[in-house]
Design a protein around this nucleic acid. Structure first.
Length: 765
DNA sequence: TAACACTTGTTTTTT
DNA sequence: ACAAGTGTTA
């Protein structure tokens, strides 16, 4: 190992093996906090050192943010230009790029734009209206998810009609016309030169399936393929990867089945579980040592996930300090929960000299952030809420981006509809409806009708025609100028010409000022983007290029991390995946909230919720607190809640339930009250002693099994246990991870403890 | 056509 | 509680 490969020394054995095995398909099962990203980045650096060209490496990540982070870590290991040249990004962004390049082959214009889910929903509603279907029966959200499922399964609108299973399902679900909706939806998207997220993956598959020479080109181009978060890939993504690697088999996928939490988006753990079927010559690497969390946190999380049936056997362990147990915080109401969490944060911060930035409050649904925010504000605790309404979801930003889209691709119907009368220019609903009807009747785009209303027999008043013409002329002019200008220049022009700038200047209300600021922020972002590209590549950035970046940006990526800002982080558990914090509060642990009520009747879904809870707990490095409320304000009314049964899924040995308060109802706390009558006790009663103890032990790591007693314990040692106090070791039995000690405690009697878990320290030998 | 009040549904997570 | 969609009025 030469000095250049010094980074390999920082890896543990299994990490290093995973990094250095490059001769065939590799499946890396990476437990939470096991250094997965490190393995991926080191592996890419290693490949580069082995002589792979950066252009020959395709690395697919789950979020843009993850890609950015990995890039910068690779840049640190190798150099900036290497990292820059890698094909690294999300499935969607990489294949958007490729599809634009190959657009001709799939019959799309190279400047095709992206419909985000709001666009796609609004298109669905237009189609429903057109077909005169009742939105209560054909619920747009349902249609949308069904569309997505079909596309993820690679069922095109044409094959859908021939798919008996699908069609019969729709009959039963009382939506027999779904296939017609699908057909029209596809036709409209095609006409608009637009693809939704799922279509990107579907079309990529079609491209690779129907054009063998193109497939071959990319197979040879991507000499090595890596996929992060493989457990979250759906069938369409899985198939793309399979196709790209089917010749050379140089593939490495990394994932953790225990953290698969996106099945609602079509993610399928089977992709990971069946990796061996696709690549019989594969090797599996398990990263089982958790470097992130204390033993208590890891053990509690293990005991929880042990309740799931479907999983790859693995044994995550920690050799960090035992740490404190998972604390459970019970409160009377969501309001009180907020108060308690805020107090705990303040207290812990003082005690541990922590920063606010070391804290995270996690919840199942975005709606829960409100109460927390309120509580934090009251205590003057700085915080930052992630998700909810991201920058790119704001109306003014969406509007200006719609202008960009139309400039690049005027047939983009959803974008055009957004801006046709914004800012108001006298083209009202009636007019738009007439244009839309004509477009549908003649099977052309809205823009085409707008360009020549008379040709499509649209009856309009003289004034309306004039206004349409003026709008049309303005857009044409912008499109023309766009050919000469770079993205930042045209953007600025657009803001002025469209009248948006003026509209926000009209009256200086608070909202308008904020809108203006947002607009300015976007312009700054574009300018920065262009400047960076100019520096890096020496080339000008077109509006199309910028749009490509921006269309696939999501909340997850907007995390413009002010690492400096000392703020508590508030986010959903989903959003927290991949992150870590010293102190984590998992809130709202109640039945029908976490696990979600939606999961109730599907064991599958409950397991996914449990994995979600697992993800939540394993974000914590030092302290993890789990809280629930007995009453919660939901959907405009107060609802009584029961604690989540997931709380009982954690082995009580790693959980501290002493905060358990007798609940305060009228009649108040009676310490001696019979268990059966109290709601609290029904909870307490469920705390079975070490329910899965034996199972857990059996599945513990065999690492060091051959060794003797870990920790150097000997019979006769005086030890201290966090809970039981001082004691003396009477005898030792077993070895390695199964080593047990029988300890006689001064105050708590004699107990037999599994040394792996027990928080025992030697006082005197 | 636009502004306003009213009604309605809706909350699970998101590339 | 809230947002989005609908209907009513000027």
């Amino acid at each position: 190992m030469n000095t250049e490969e010094v980074y390999l020394e920082q890896l543990n054995d299994s990490q290093r093996e995973a990094v250095m095995y490059c001769d065939g398909p590799a499946l890396v099962v990476a437990g939470a906090g096991s250094g997965k990203t490190r393995v991926l980045t080191c592996k890419i650096a290693y490949l580069l050192r082995q002589g792979y060209s950066p252009y020959g490496i395709l690395a697919l990540t789950f979020t843009n943010k993850a890609a950015r982070e990995m890039k910068s870590r690779i840049a640190a290991l190798t150099d900036e230009s290497m990292a820059q040249r890698l094909w690294m990004g999300t499935f969607h962004s990489i294949f958007y790029r490729i599809l634009r390049f190959e657009a001709e082959q799939i019959g799309f214009p190279p400047d095709f734009t992206i419909y985000d889910s709001a666009d796609s929903k609004s298109l669905i509603r237009i189609i429903l209206k057109e077909m005169q279907l009742d939105e209560k029966v054909y619920r747009p959200a349902l249609i949308q998810s069904r569309l997505s499922n079909a596309k993820n399964a690679l069922i095109t609108s044409r094959s859908y009609e021939q798919n008996r299973e699908m069609v019969e399902h729709d009959m039963r679900a009382q939506i027999p016309l779904f296939r017609e909706i699908y057909k029209r939806y596809q036709a409209r998207c095609f006409q608009a030169g637009a693809m939704d997220f799922d279509e990107l993956l579907l079309q990529t598959n079609i491209l690779l399936r129907d054009h063998p020479e193109t497939l071959l080109k990319y197979q040879e181009m991507f000499r090595y393929v890596l996929v992060d978060e493989y457990q979250d890939t759906n069938f369409a993504q899985h198939l793309i990867v399979t196709r790209l690697c089917e010749r050379h088999h140089r593939i490495c996928v990394v994932g953790d089945d225990a953290q698969s939490i996106y099945s609602f988006r079509g993610a399928n753990i089977d992709n990971m579980l069946r990796f061996k079927d696709h690549y019989p010559d594969f090797r599996i690497f398990k990263l089982e040592r958790n470097y992130r969390s204390t033993q208590n946190i890891v053990n509690a999380a293990n005991s929880l996930i042990g309740k799931n049936r479907e999983q790859i056997p693995k044994t995550v362990y920690s050799e960090n300090e035992p740490g404190s147990k998972i604390r459970i915080l019970a409160s009377y109401s969501d309001y009180e929960e907020g108060y308690l969490v805020a107090s705990q944060i303040a207290e812990l911060r003082m005690r541990e000299h922590a920063r606010y930035a070391d804290f995270a409050i996690l919840y199942r649904t975005n709606a829960q952030s409100r109460v927390m925010e309120e509580a934090l504000r009251k205590r003057n605790i700085a915080y930052r809420v992630y998700g909810s309404q991201s920058f790119y979801q704001r109306k003014e930003i969406r509007d200006i981006i719609a202008y960009f889209r139309v400039t690049v691709n005027p047939h983009d119907g959803e974008a055009l509809r957004r801006i046709i009368n914004f800012p108001a220019r006298g083209i009202g609903e009636t007019t738009v409806n007439k244009l839309l009807a004509a477009a549908a009747a003649h099977q052309v785009s809205l823009w085409t009708v707008l360009s020549a209303p008379a040709e499509y027999a649209v009856a309009l008043s003289e004034g309306t025609i004039r206004r349409l013409r003026s709008f049309h002329a303005m857009m044409e002019e912008l499109m023309k100028e766009n050919r000469q200008l770079s993205a930042d220049e045209i953007a600025e022009l657009l803001v002025k010409r469209s009248g948006m700038a003026a509209a926000f200047f009209q009256d200086r209300t608070v909202e308008n000022i904020s809108r203006q600021e947002n607009l300015q922020e976007l312009l700054n972002a574009i300018a920065e983007f262009c400047a960076t590209r100019r520096e890096e590549t020496g080339e000008e950035t077109s509006l199309t290029d910028f749009l490509m970046e921006v269309s696939l940006i999501t909340d997850q990526d907007t995390g413009r991390e002010d690492r400096e800002a000392d703020q508590v982080t508030l986010m959903t558990v989903h959003a927290a995946k991949g992150l870590e914090f010293d102190n984590v509060f998992v809130t709202g642990m109640e039945e029908n909230l976490f696990p979600s009520a939606m999961a109730k009747d599907s064991p599958h879904a409950v397991e996914e919720e449990r994995r979600l809870f697992y993800v939540a707990i394993t974000r914590a490095r030092k302290h993890c607190t789990v809280s629930y409320a007995r009453n919660r304000f939901r959907n405009g009314e107060n609802t009584a809640c029961r604690p989540s049964h997931f709380l009982n899924d954690m082995d009580p040995r790693y959980v501290d339930r002493q905060e358990e308060q007798p609940n305060r109802q009228a009649g108040a706390a009676q310490p001696g009250r019979t268990f059966a009558s109290s709601p609290v006790s029904s909870f307490t009663r469920d705390v079975r002693p070490a329910p899965s103890l034996t199972k857990l032990e059996v599945s513990r790591p065999e690492a060091g099994e051959q060794g003797g007693i870990p920790g150097g314990f000997q019979v006769g040692d005086i030890v201290r246990h966090e809970r039981f106090g001082r004691g003396r070791i009477l005898s030792l039995e077993g070895g390695g991870s199964n080593a047990r000690a029988s300890i006689s405690f001064e105050h708590s009697g004699t107990k037999s403890l599994l040394l792996k878990y027990a928080k025992v320290t030697i006082l005197k030998e």
